[in-house]
Simulated scan of single mutants.
Amino acid sequence: MANGRAKTLEDLEIQFTTIGARAQALVESAGPDLCSRPPASGSWSVAECLQHLNVIADAYFPVWQQIIANAGPRKAALNAPYQIDFWGRLISWILEPPARIRSKTPLPFQPVDCNSIDSVLAGFLARQQHIVDTLRRCRGRAIDTVSIASPVDSRIRYSIWSSFLVNAAHQRHHLWQAEQALQKLRSEK
């Protein structure tokens, strides 16, 4: 399951692994010059899209680490589908590409320090592996019954499970954005 809403931890592992491979292929096909150039003033480059995802992942890791450790055992069968909650369903639906609603990225989550696409990509791929490792620590835990506050907007609370689904949708959104940026840059040549 590379796209669509994941129902199991294995589905999500596949999604995050696929997203990482997709980002790597995108960067390799474009090269450093195109990856560092935004397609228009006020738009993000490929490097900025990936760096934004790095910043978001870094905001989630401490929350996941703390809450997952305290999540109780899952009562459902080990391979039973997890349940998404209202906020997870809504936000992931909004974020799936093409995005249905555009919003301004809060300042703490805007991409900065996009030194080189190689370092940004390496950081992104390392974070993808960290997410997969985090998912593996969730096995047997009731992560769809434990809520967290979103590190992006503390007014929004959703389950740990939903937070992973939102992250996957968010990553697909920004990879799509990066692909659109490259397409525009290539068409201008």
Score class of each variant (00 low, 15 high):
1 M>R: 14
1 M>F: 09
4 G>I: 07
6 A>D: 04
8 T>K: 04
10 E>P: 03
13 E>M: 08
14 I>C: 02
16 F>P: 06
18 T>H: 11
21 A>W: 04
26 L>Y: 12
27 V>H: 05
31 G>H: 12
32 P>E: 11
33 D>Q: 14
33 D>S: 14
33 D>H: 14
35 C>A: 08
36 S>I: 00
37 R>L: 13
39 P>H: 08
41 S>F: 14
41 S>P: 10
43 S>N: 07
44 W>V: 05
45 S>N: 07
45 S>C: 07
50 L>W: 08
53 L>I: 07
55 V>H: 10
57 A>F: 10
58 D>C: 00
58 D>M: 03
60 Y>K: 01
61 F>N: 00
76 A>L: 09
76 A>M: 06
77 A>G: 15
77 A>F: 14
78 L>M: 09
84 I>G: 01
85 D>S: 09
87 W>S: 11
89 R>T: 10
91 I>T: 12
92 S>C: 04
94 I>H: 02
94 I>N: 07
95 L>M: 14
96 E>C: 01
97 P>M: 00
98 P>W: 04
99 A>L: 03
102 R>F: 14
102 R>A: 11
103 S>M: 12
103 S>Q: 06
110 Q>V: 07
110 Q>L: 05
110 Q>R: 15
114 C>G: 02
114 C>R: 02
114 C>Y: 06
115 N>Y: 08
117 I>K: 04
118 D>V: 12
121 L>H: 09
123 G>Y: 11
127 R>I: 03
128 Q>G: 00
134 T>V: 06
135 L>N: 01
135 L>D: 01
135 L>M: 02
135 L>H: 09
136 R>N: 13
138 C>K: 03
138 C>M: 15
138 C>G: 05
139 R>F: 06
141 R>V: 06
142 A>W: 09
143 I>A: 02
143 I>V: 13
144 D>V: 08
147 S>F: 12
147 S>A: 05
147 S>R: 14
148 I>M: 10
148 I>N: 03
148 I>R: 05
153 D>F: 15
156 I>Q: 07
157 R>G: 01
158 Y>C: 11
158 Y>E: 03
159 S>Y: 05
160 I>V: 15
161 W>E: 02
162 S>K: 07
163 S>Q: 04
164 F>G: 00
167 N>I: 05
168 A>G: 10
172 R>Q: 14
174 H>K: 11
175 L>E: 03
175 L>C: 07
177 Q>I: 01
177 Q>F: 13
178 A>S: 10
178 A>Q: 06
180 Q>T: 06
180 Q>F: 10
180 Q>I: 03
181 A>D: 03
181 A>W: 11
184 K>E: 13
185 L>C: 04
186 R>I: 04
187 S>E: 08
188 E>R: 15
188 E>K: 15
189 K>N: 13
